[in-house]
Nucleic acid binder design. Structure first.
Length: 415
DNA sequence: TCTGGGGTCCTAGGACCC
DNA sequence: TCTGGGGTCCTAGGACCC
């Protein structure tokens, strides 16, 4: 085997719950859940009862009556997640962060300084434990996919090194759902034809796999099953879209509900887009009805936008289009907005976004300009005095939120 | 009182262009 | 028996990831 195993995948165990147990020693060893109405994260002790993230709080309590709910320390999550990734960064600059609690790294270029990849993995685990007090699992392998599978196998608080000579022996006896890209639907489709392990999937003829799952997914899974994974560590990936959504229980599909919610969502998104000078051309809205079916509508503009009111009005128009197509739907349970086709960068100081100029031309007024100026003023005040100092906060709009905005921020990708 | 929130990628059909 | 064909963009829906 020409290549050696130099890819690491590091994954903090039950991250939010572990942080809570770190901050409150009395919670250690106990089943806890971060959240309330909905479980945002569960400790291993709670997972043993079947408690999972995203689960309604009531259902979690039924599964585990002694479950302890704790409010989240969201700033601590951000700080400790950043600190753990920084520990990895002390070994190599080739780090690809996947989320707040998970990252890949390639240590091929730093073994002369810090030892073999398994030694580096042990050092990372030891430092995260000693300096931050958190358990972290690490997988070491020749490819990203295998390193990721290895870290899953290593959990909780473990290290698994996959020798390049025994890759397929390691991989092929594992269940298919450990593969990247196999979720509940694919797992069920494979189970229907008797495929339960990655080895069974690997031996399936490529054609039947593609017929079952589509050409792209079929080819991808076949390659992964033989550990032919070409993906490289990419330390700087730009976001391709930015969005926000809000589950609102069951509410009548009326303007008094829809408009303030869309305004709040548009404000959150547009503020982020302006902060990074990345206006976008495509606006998509999603409406979920009471029975959880959901519908999307989108529009692609000639020029990119990031003004809060323009985004709000486009979103309102798209929602109206949905209800024109579904006149019998009277109750909604979720509204979402997403902006994609983002510009790489728009230099605000040199050029106004075209959307504003077009808008000004189209309406024969300077309303676009005025809106942009208003947005910038609001952004500045918020930068100085905080987000709630001015504007269309959810509190000001009288919205009920199932999830705090601080928690939402943790999932936001850098634009 | 059934089901959070922020993302990525793929597919299929249609419009449009050359 | 019928049909040109390839490329690109847009839209709607869906699977999946953390």
């Amino acid at each position: 085997m020409a290549d050696s195993a130099t890819i690491l995948h590091a994954d903090l165990d039950a991250f939010y719950a572990s942080v809570e147990q770190l901050l409150s020693p009395s919670l250690r060893g106990k089943p806890i859940a971060v959240g309330g109405g909905v479980v945002l994260a569960a400790s291993y002790e709670a997972k043993a009862f079947g408690v999972r993230g995203g689960m309604p709080g009531r259902q979690a309590r039924e599964l585990c009556p002694q479950l302890i709910f704790v409010g989240g320390h969201f700033q601590e999550y951000q700080r400790l997640g950043d600190a753990a990734v920084k520990v990895i960064g002390d070994f190599t600059p080739l780090v690809e962060r996947i989320s707040i609690d998970e990252a890949f790294a390639d240590v091929a270029g730093c073994t002369h300084l810090f030892g073999s990849p398994p030694e580096i993995a042990r050092a990372i685990r030891q430092r995260v434990r000693a300096e931050l007090g958190l358990p972290i699992s690490v997988g070491v392998a020749r490819t990203k996919h295998l390193a990721k599978v290895a870290s899953q196998v290593a959990k909780p608080d473990g290290l698994v090194v996959v020798d390049p000579d025994t890759e397929l022996e390691f991989l092929h006896h594992l269940p298919v759902e450990l593969m990247w890209g196999v979720g509940p639907v694919t797992r069920a489709r494979l189970a229907k034809i008797g495929v339960l392990t990655i080895g069974q999937l690997a031996k399936l003829p490529g054609r039947s796999l593609e017929r079952l799952l589509g050409p792209a997914a079929g080819k991808k899974l076949a390659a992964l099953a033989w550990n032919r994974d070409p993906r490289e560590i990419r330390s700087h990936r730009r976001a391709r879209s930015a969005g926000a959504q809000s589950a609102i229980g069951r509410k009548p599909a009326e303007a008094r509900v829809i408009r303030p919610t869309l305004l709040h969502l548009a404000d959150r998104i547009a503020t982020r887009l302006r902060a990074k000078s990345r206006p976008g051309r495509t606006v998509t809205v999603r409406v979920r009805f009471a029975d959880l079916r959901s519908v999307t509508r989108s529009v692609t503009l000639d020029a990119p936008i990031f003004a809060t009111m323009i985004l709000t009005e486009l979103a309102e128009g798209l929602v109206r289009a949905i209800f024109a197509d579904y006149p019998d739907e009277k109750t909604i349970s979720l509204l979402a907005i997403s902006v994609s086709h983002l510009e790489e960068h728009w230099d605000l100081e040199l050029e106004l976004p075209l959307g504003l100029r077009d808008e000004a031309r189209r309406t024969g007024s300077r309303i676009g300009m005025a809106r942009w100026a208003a947005d910038r003023a609001v952004d500045k005040i918020r930068n100085r005095f905080g987000r709630d100092a001015i504007g269309y906060g959810s509190a000001a709009l009288g919205l009920s939120r199932s999830v705090p905005d601080e928690f939402r921020k943790l999932a936001e990708k850098d634009l």
